[in-house]
């Protein structure tokens, strides 16, 4: 491991090299172990202040960042806001001014507009961590997915990963695509043509509209939630039809390889994109993803928040 970490911000996986991604994953190995200690807390970021700024609602990601910060001994402030009354530009400028006034060292930002974290990263001395920006990127989710695959299968290169569902609106899918391709995986996107348009092939992935063709060949299936809140018009006729065509039902799960991993970034719509029996089955690593998310976020906060700026 000779790579050096030089970034104050984590905005997306598109801009990271394979070496940098691997460096984060290896750093996360060390932080995962902290959770098994008698004292589950290290002083690495003692005296630093982290602001969780979530303009869009989120419980699991915010909680995961908050717990990660606690375990690194940072102080945490949670701010939630709505953008409804303010235009995007004004909000972000105000945000930047307020955060500078608070002397925040690390800003974890979730925002409905793509590019919002980059906008702030360029204007703030603080570290900016993207916790999801619009339909653009959600780098820590993809990193925890990569970490979980690497942990369970001991490698990523050469594995065939199927990402199934609402790709068009999914920042999780985009970050996963960038990360998986950089680490040498083969990626197939699966879903209705309205949600998985052929344009994605330009990124270097395969696109399929037939889940039954893909499932028997996959080493990992990553199921995405149908994002009702991001869809401005109907992209498929109805939930029943979606389940029939693309849901990972228990009947379909029988066609998976026995060692195929089943992943989901949560929250799960049981009975829609995945059946309860499958989500709770032996191949499911959904709760490992949650545990690993904490280690990966500790690593990211340590690396970005720890470098001298």
């Amino acid at each position: 491991m000779t790579t050096r970490w030089t970034r104050k911000d984590l905005l997306g996986l598109r801009e990271l090299s394979a070496e940098e991604i691997n460096f984060i994953l290896e750093t996360a190995d060390a932080f995962k172990q902290v959770g098994t200690r008698e004292i589950k807390k290290v002083p690495a970021l003692r005296g630093k202040t982290l602001v969780n700024f979530f303009v869009e609602p989120s419980t699991r990601t915010r909680t995961s960042f908050e717990l990660a910060a606690f375990r690194l001994s940072a102080d945490v402030i949670n701010i939630s806001a709505t953008t409804s009354s303010l235009t995007k530009g004004e909000t972000l400028k105000d945000t930047a001014r307020n955060l500078e006034a608070l002397h925040a060292d690390i800003l974890v930002l979730r925002h409905s507009s793509a590019g919002a974290p980059q906008f702030l990263a360029q204007r703030l001395k603080s570290s900016v961590i993207n916790a999801g920006d619009g339909a653009h990127e959600h780098p820590t989710q993809a990193l925890l997915d990569l970490y979980t695959i690497r942990e369970k299968r001991e490698k990523i290169a050469g594995l065939h990963v199927a990402i199934i569902g609402d790709i068009l609106f999914s920042r999780v899918a985009r970050s996963n695509i960038f990360g998986l391709l950089k680490l040498g995986a083969r990626v197939t996107l699966v879903g209705p043509s309205t949600l998985v348009p052929r344009e994605f092939e330009k990124l270097g992935v395969e696109v399929s509209h037939k889940i039954d063709d893909v499932l028997p060949k996959a080493d990992v299936v990553n199921l995405l939630r149908i994002q009702h809140e991001r869809q401005r018009r109907e992209y498929f006729p109805g939930i029943d039809e979606y389940i029939r065509l693309f849901g990972l039902t228990k009947e379909r799960a029988r066609f998976l390889k026995p060692d195929c991993l089943i992943m989901h970034p949560g929250p799960i719509n049981r009975g829609v994109e995945i059946d309860s029996e499958v989500a709770d089955g032996l191949q499911s690593v959904i709760l490992d993803q949650v545990t690993n998310g904490l280690a990966v976020r500790m690593a990211v906060l340590y690396l970005c928040g720890g470098i001298s700026t």
Binding site: R4, D29, V34
Partner: peptide, 22 residues
């Protein structure tokens, strides 16, 4: 024993010590 995450100079060094599992 990894000491990187227990150091008292994080944020003051240009290069972060590599963190390893203990």
């Amino acid at each position: 024993i990894d000491v990187a995450m227990h150091r008292d100079d994080v944020g003051t060094r240009a290069e972060l010590p590599v963190v390893r599992a203990s």
